[in-house]
């Protein structure tokens, strides 16, 4: 075992981005471990690792979290489907026609300015605290980015392409199908993907606000919070955050993959 080789390997490790990136989370974990073993803070606030491990393996906890995720996802997909349908219709319509933009645009931008969770008190009054309310809420959240993405995409169709379509005497439908949609597709797909992640956290936010009664992972976490089950809260929040990050990471390559037929430049 030669010394210089080991030293240079260590130096390479020290300079590698991967190693450096892992240091802050590792330090946090060590700090956490020290804090719990020395009881610097109440175990109600910061649970020991052992308890977290037990909770993760507890079939009851596992069951309620899994069921919560499943029911949140079911509503997410329904709301998302409705939301992107409406969002696409509005966004493409506003992009295609200046008149339609004048009719719907100001109202859309006014509604867009309202912080999203501010709709919940109103929606619970109108649609109750059950599934319907949350589906409507997710639909509102999902529509917002889609309208903007579709609008931008359609509006930024290169004028040359439109001109070619006109010269070729394309019908309106043909123009939409062969010129405008292919040209705006990347913007729309990016918006759809943004909208899914946004909807996921909106669905969670709605469940937090509406609370324990409503089912879904958010309400499981809120219920655990009321019963001071910090371990379950921690597991739940980690699960929620990890799902969001995973969706983000998993979908990031999608536009590039779908539109690899487009020439670069």
């Amino acid at each position: 075992m030669s010394h210089p080789a080991a030293a240079s390997a260590l130096q390479r490790l020290w300079h590698s981005r991967r190693f450096r990136g892992l240091v802050p989370p590792a330090l946090l974990l060590v700090l956490w471990w020290l804090a719990t073993t020395h009881e610097w803070v109440s175990p109600l606030v910061l649970v020991p690792f052992g308890q977290l491990y037990d909770a993760a393996l507890d079939p009851q906890v596992f069951h309620s979290l899994a069921e919560g995720i499943a029911s949140t996802f079911a509503r997410l997909l329904q709301g998302y489907g409705i939301g992107i349908g409406i969002g696409l219709a509005l966004g493409v319509g506003m992009g295609l026609s200046k008149a339609f933009d004048r009719i719907m645009g100001p109202s859309f931008h006014a509604v867009r300015q309202v912080a999203i969770l501010a709709w919940i008190p109103l929606l619970t009054a109108w649609f109750g605290t059950g599934d319907l309310c949350k589906i409507v809420f997710v639909a509102i959240a999902a529509a917002k980015p889609v309208v903007m993405g579709a609008f931008e995409g359609v509006r930024s169709t290169p004028a040359q392409l439109l001109e070619v379509g006109r010269v070729l005497g394309f019908s309106r439908l043909k123009m939409l199908r062969w010129v405008i949609l292919p040209s705006s597709a990347p913007a729309i797909v990016t918006a759809l993907q943004l909208s899914l992640i946004y909807s996921w956290f909106a669905a969670i936010g709605a469940e937090y606000v509406i609370g324990v009664m409503s089912g879904g992972i958010g309400s499981v976490v809120m219920g655990a919070q009321e019963h001071f089950r910090t371990d379950v809260v921690l597991l739940g929040v980690t699960l929620i955050a990890a799902t969001g990050v995973a969706m983000n990471k998993g979908l990031r390559g999608l536009p590039d993959y779908l539109f690899r037929w487009r020439t670069r430049g």
Binding site: L44, L117, F201, G205, A224, I240, A241
Partner: peptide, 11 residues
């Protein structure tokens, strides 16, 4: 988003 972390932060 911070909203996702609210229950944990509340504790």
């Amino acid at each position: 988003p911070s909203i996702a972390l609210i229950p944990l932060l509340m504790m």
